[in-house]
Computed example of a mutant assay.
Amino acid sequence: MDSPSGAAVFAEGFGVKGPRGWAFRSVDVDAAPGSLIGIQGPSGSGRTCLLLALTGRMRPAAGRAEVGGLALPREMAAVRRISALAHVPGVSDLDPALTVDEHLKERALLRSRYDGSLRELLRPRAERAGALRQRIDAALESAGLDRGGLPKEGRTSVRDLERLEALRLSIALALIGRPRLLAVDDSDLKLSDADRAAAWDLLRSVADAGTTVLAVCGRAQECTSVIRTDVTNVTDAIDTTDTTDVADVTDGEGTADALAEAGRA
C-alpha cells in the first residue's frame, strides 16, 4: 500500500461552543504533514471535541483552521474525506460481538464500494478481492496487529481482545481508508506502562510512514506538537525540559453539549 501524504494541521484561535459554554477555545497549532500531535488533558477537558472539530466532524464557533489546505468550517465535508477516526467512544466503537476478520472485511468492502472509482468497480471480482486482501494486510501491518497471535486468530471476538489489541484493530480499520489524517481518541486510556509505550511506538510509526496523527492522551510522549486542554497559561504549565510545541487552550463547561452537537454539524 502506498504511503499517504500527510495533512498539515493549522489552527488559530480555534474553539467549539455548546449551549452551556465553551468545550474549548483559543487553540493554536501549526503542524507539518506527518506530524504526531498530542491533545493532552484530563477527561472532560474538551479533548474529544477538539479531535472531532479538527477532523471536520464538529462545527467550530471561533477562530480558523486548515487541514491539508482545506478550511474549516467551510470545507468540513472535504476534511472528513481525508481523515479517519479510531477508538472514539460513541463514534467509532468496535462491535464486541463481531470477530476481527468480520470487522476488517466489513470496513474494506465499505471503503471499496463508496470510495473506489468506477474503473476500480469494473475490475474482475478476483482482482478486486485480491486488492482488498492487500489493503487489509497493509493496514494490519501498519497497526502492528498479528491475527496469528490472537486466541482464535481472525475469528477472535472483539470482546476477547486485550486493550492494546483493540486499539490496534481500531487503528487498522481507520488505515484501510488510507487517510491523510488519523485521529485517535483515548490512545493511552487504562493501559499498563508497557502497553502505553507500545501504543506510542505505534502512533509514531504511523506518523513516520507519512500519515499525520492526532492523538488524545493523558500524557503526551515525544510528540511533534502538543495541545494542552487543561491549562490557560502555557508558561506555567509547560515542562521546560520538553522541546515539543505546546498550544494554549482555555477550557469551558460545554463539552458534553458540544459532543451532542457533533452529529448535527
Rank of each mutant, 00 (worst) to 15 (best):
S3M: 06
S3K: 13
A8D: 07
G13K: 07
F14E: 02
F14A: 01
F14K: 03
G15K: 02
K17M: 07
G18W: 02
R25P: 03
S26R: 14
D28L: 00
V29C: 07
I39Y: 03
S43W: 00
S45V: 09
A53R: 07
L54M: 08
G56V: 06
R57C: 01
A61H: 13
R64V: 09
V67E: 05
L72Q: 11
L72T: 12
A77Y: 11
V79S: 06
S83M: 10
S83F: 07
L85M: 11
A86Y: 05
H87Y: 11
V88Q: 05
L94E: 05
D95T: 09
L98Y: 08
V100N: 04
V100Y: 04
E106G: 00
E106H: 08
R107E: 11
R107C: 05
R113K: 11
R113W: 10
S117F: 06
L118V: 14
R119T: 11
L121N: 00
P124I: 06
A126V: 14
A126D: 13
I136H: 02
D137W: 00
L140R: 07
S142Q: 13
G144A: 13
R147F: 01
G148T: 08
L150T: 14
E153V: 11
S157W: 07
V158K: 04
L164S: 04
E165K: 05
L173W: 01
R178F: 00
R178Y: 00
L181W: 10
D185R: 03
D185E: 06
S187K: 01
D193Y: 10
L202A: 13
R204C: 05
S205F: 09
T212F: 12
V216I: 11
C217A: 14
C217P: 01
G218K: 12
R219M: 09
E222I: 00
C223I: 02
T229I: 07
V231T: 15
V231Q: 14
V234I: 15
V234A: 14
I238D: 00
D239E: 12
D239L: 14
D242V: 08
T243W: 07
A247S: 14
T250R: 15
D251M: 08
D257Q: 06
L259P: 01
G263A: 06
A265K: 02
